[in-house]
Design a protein around this nucleic acid. Structure first.
Length: 347
DNA sequence: AAATCGTGGGA
DNA sequence: TTCCCAAGATT
């Protein structure tokens, strides 16, 4: 079987390696948290948030013992909040079943909430220097090109081919550097849009490069289309505070988060007095007048593109199922959409 | 197993 | 502005 040129890869990594926060004081817990934070999140964003999160939750035990709202607050703005909820659940399992230390076994790790094939392999390799098939989007792209594999990167055929080559190529004592080097190679050289083959230590043996077809691999995934939505958010003042409501605990989207009262509406919906009445009635309020638009921001949530308008409304009534919050110092976990509407300048 | 979950940043 | 991407997991 073809084998990746590990020595050349490691030599390249030795000088190209970026100095990222999670590569300092490497411990299993720091590796784990970093891998979760980096899921679908750029290294630039994660590097700004990682140090503070680790300071706040320095051990699995620290996170396990915290309130969920504190964990969410430390994750605010990173998105995919299920990640931190799962991480906290997993930390509790580790405290309960593993005396608070991160398991070294890939299968045990794989069974913890929020840890899939990639993250289990990454922890084993990067934290414990054990050989594993660490295949993230970067490595998948590198391997698809290097092998010239025609199958989609999420196919079983490609995955098993890549896994076999990786496990056959990884130097037993260099699992950490080898695995991290391939990720780094994908991030720095073998990028999706533009590959820098001239600098690549794998180019000599790369099928895509030798056939001048790097841009053909991997085959692009079909585009998911997004929906345009108008989000109407109401600003109802009570002195210095404003009315906020909490999303249901079983909501598919952002469960348990607080936000300004309002709704998502089909793009172009009328925002007349009747609409205000409909939105305010559930929280016991009755609008006086039509309200006025204070500002508009754009935001997107997975497949939805939101145009968010903040409408100030005078309303009376006895508040139900809602809370009064100081918008300059919100104590609760807000949706980013509402936070954006309140953040832009003073209201 | 295709659809869904958030967000910031760069092109 | 708009589009696309970024160290995936879950159902």
């Amino acid at each position: 079987m073809k084998r990746l040129p590990a020595d050349q890869l490691l030599a390249w990594f030795a000088h190209a390696r970026r100095d990222l926060p999670w590569r300092q004081q490497r411990t299993p817990w720091r590796v784990w948290v970093a891998e979760i934070m980096l899921q679908q999140t750029t290294a630039l964003v994660a590097s700004k948030r990682f140090p503070e999160f680790m300071q706040r939750f320095a051990t699995p035990r620290a996170l396990a013992g915290a309130e969920e709202s504190a964990a969410l607050a430390a994750w605010a703005g990173l998105g995919y909040y299920r990640r931190v909820r799962s991480l906290q659940q997993a930390a509790r399992v580790v405290v309960r079943d593993h005396a608070g230390s991160v398991p070294r076994n890939e299968q045990i790790l794989r069974g913890l909430p929020g840890i899939g094939d990639y993250t289990a392999a990454a922890i084993v390799a990067l934290a414990f220097n054990q050989p594993a098939a660490v295949i993230d989007a970067n490595v998948a792209r590198v391997m698809a090109r290097w092998l010239g594999h025609e199958s989609p990167v999420n196919s079983q055929a490609f995955r098993s081919a890549a896994r076999e080559v990786l496990l056959h190529s990884v130097p037993a004592a260099q699992a950490r550097n080898f695995s991290e080097a391939l990720i780094e190679l994908g991030a720095l050289l073998c990028r999706a849009a533009a590959a820098d083959c001239a600098a690549c230590p794998l180019a000599r043996s790369c099928v895509a490069h030798s056939t001048q077809s790097v841009e053909r691999f991997p085959h692009p995934a079909p585009r998911k289309l997004s929906t345009a939505v108008d989000s109407l958010r109401l600003l109802v003042r009570r002195g210095r505070r404003v009315v906020m409501v909490q999303r249901p605990a079983d909501a598919a989207l952002l469960p348990g988060f607080w936000e300004l009262p309002g709704a998502w509406l089909p793009r172009g919906s009328a925002t007349d007095a009747a609409m205000l009445r409909t939105l305010l009635a559930p929280i016991g309020l009755k609008a006086a007048g039509e309200g006025r638009v204070l500002r508009q921001v754009s935001h997107s949530i997975t497949t939805h593109r939101l145009r968010c308008r903040l409408v100030e409304v005078d309303a009376r009534g006895r508040l139900r199922s809602a809370a009064l919050v100081d918008p300059t110092a919100p104590q609760r976990n807000l949706t980013t959409e509402s936070a954006k509407l309140l953040r832009v300048g003073a209201i």
